[in-house]
Design a binder for these strands. Structure first.
Length: 491
DNA sequence: AGCACA
């Protein structure tokens, strides 16, 4: 059976791939040697060296398929074989289309090092100590430190990748000298890889970040952990430094919050460019990138302290991120780049889950395709155990038609939040939140517009936040409407 | 000299 007309184990011609498989390499051939060999044909985006029992195979991934084809074609018709250290190298298309997580990109050279300091708290190793240690290898441009689940980490920026590489090879796995550390620190190993960054965005000198190239950079008297940075306002008070990227942490997360949900929520204020969600110290956080600061400010003011779902669930805390442009690689369940056109089937606009909605909503008879509707599948399907005290299940089912009818209407005044029309129409279960009634979204605009047709929903469950035009209405003029079509923003 | 495992 095995030999009959089946696929031979190896074919002479593989289907093209931007990944090439190289054989007969010299022992422990380095990435530099591979790149040297391949880079005349295109840009190498990833490699995997020392593959196979003999460590004499490797994979090289080009940025573009045509580059891989160019290399294979060239050597197929060349009288000189590809060579490394005088050895003939055999190359062919890999049977995979990409190199899968070779070394988590930490091995592709960069002038910026990602340093994980094991076994210490962030307070144990000062930025000055790091600066001292890494300056032994060359001029350190910038350092940024932060706390991650992996531990205390630092990004250390050198002039070039060579300098960074020398620091890395000298220090990786080593320990910071004891005399530079507090006495209680037992050990302090450095794990060093290359960062994907090339230029750190340091806005202040602080105990968390330094820019040694700019002595005039303002000193931040009190950089606060976690959130963005602060500046001193005209009134002498500390003021959060605004950014086009919001950092959202979510409290009381009883229900899953997906990229799509966030996109829907935050798109109410303007076009969302990128979203990344991640865990930090066991908490849920997300970064939401807008094209400009004004939009972010608007979204922050409107959403801060509000809950995505009524009942105090998924309460948003917003601050300004230090980031200005998120490094979102692929579109997956943790991150999304909405600025990439035609990226698969992903909608550039808030998800239109029209197909799923009617069934899920049950009885909703609205039009089949409504870009603003978020069906909230996850939530629909999540079991909602009855709770004492009449706490409702997260109520998505009610009110859909109200939201729907919103579409045609545009415009309660800018004071929808504080409109007297809302008095007494807060959520049944008043969440222990300050200010605006209940669920940010569930009330805004809906009852306001519909109160003549519908009785208030006191005692009734509420729908999830999907507020789109509701929020739009709040925008103090001038904001481009969130509409379909090509984004008017560019990176 | 013939396809990796995060």
């Amino acid at each position: 059976m095995a030999s009959s007309a089946g696929q031979p184990q190896f074919r002479y011609t593989q289907p093209p791939s931007k990944v090439l498989h190289l054989r007969n390499l010299p022992w422990e051939c380095t990435e530099e040697e591979l790149i040297e060999l391949c880079k005349p044909f295109g840009r190498i985006v990833n490699t995997k060296c020392n593959v196979g029992a003999n460590h004499n195979q490797a994979f090289v991934e080009f940025a573009d398929l045509n580059q891989a084809i160019a290399m294979v074609s060239y050597y197929a018709s060349s009288s000189e074989p590809a060579q490394v250290r005088g050895k003939s190298v055999y190359l062919q298309y890999s049977n995979r289309q990409e190199i899968v997580n070779n070394k988590s990109t930490g091995d592709v050279a960069s002038n910026v090092l990602l340093v994980t300091i094991e076994g210490v708290d962030s307070g144990d190793v000062s930025i000055d100590v790091l600066h001292l240690v890494f300056s032994a290898f060359g001029f350190v441009h910038k350092i940024a430190t932060f706390e991650k689940t992996a531990g205390f980490q630092a990004l250390v920026q050198f002039s070039d990748a060579d300098t960074a590489a020398s620091a890395r090879s000298a220090l990786d796995g080593r320990s910071i000298p004891r005399y530079l550390l507090p006495e209680h620190v037992a050990s302090c190993h450095l794990r060093i890889s290359f960062s994907a960054h090339t230029d750190l965005n340091v806005k202040f000198q602080s105990h968390r970040s330094r820019d040694y190239t700019n002595p005039n950079l303002p000193v931040n008297p009190s950089a606060i952990d976690g959130a963005g940075q602060f500046t001193v306002g005209p009134d002498g008070k500390r003021r959060e430094l605004e950014s086009n990227v919001l950092l959202a942490s979510i409290e009381n997360m009883q229900y899953a919050v997906t990229v799509d949900v966030l996109n829907t929520v935050f798109s109410a204020f303007g076009r969302v460019q990128k979203i990344a969600i991640f865990e930090k110290n066991g908490g849920f956080q997300a970064l939401i990138q807008y094209p400009d600061i004004a939009t972010a400010v608007l979204a922050k003011e409107a959403l801060e302290g509000h809950c995505i779902y009524d009942g105090g669930y998924c309460k948003l805390h917003l601050s300004y991120s230090r980031h200005t442009d998120l490094n979102v690689k692929g579109n997956n369940d943790r991150s999304r780049d909405y600025t990439i056109p035609a990226s698969g089937m992903l909608p550039a606009q808030p998800p239109s889950l029209a197909g799923a909605a009617p069934a899920a909503v049950g009885g909703w008879q609205g039009p089949p395709s409504t870009p603003i509707m978020y069906s909230g599948n996850e939530f629909m399907s999540s079991p909602c155990p009855p709770q004492p005290g009449g706490v409702p299940r997260p109520q998505h089912l009610q009110g859909w038609e109200y939201g729907q009818s919103q579409i045609a209407s545009q415009t309660p005044g800018p004071n929808a939040f504080s409109s007297p029309a809302y008095a007494g129409q807060g959520p049944l279960i008043t969440p222990p939140m300050p200010s605006p009634p209940g669920l940010v979204a569930s009330n805004i605009g809906t009852n306001n517009l519909q109160s003549s047709n519908h009785s208030p929903h006191i005692g009734q469950p509420q729908m999830p936040y999907y507020g789109h035009q509701q929020m739009q209405m709040q925008m103090p003029g001038g904001l481009p409407p969130v509409s379909g079509g090509t984004p008017a923003y560019h990176m």
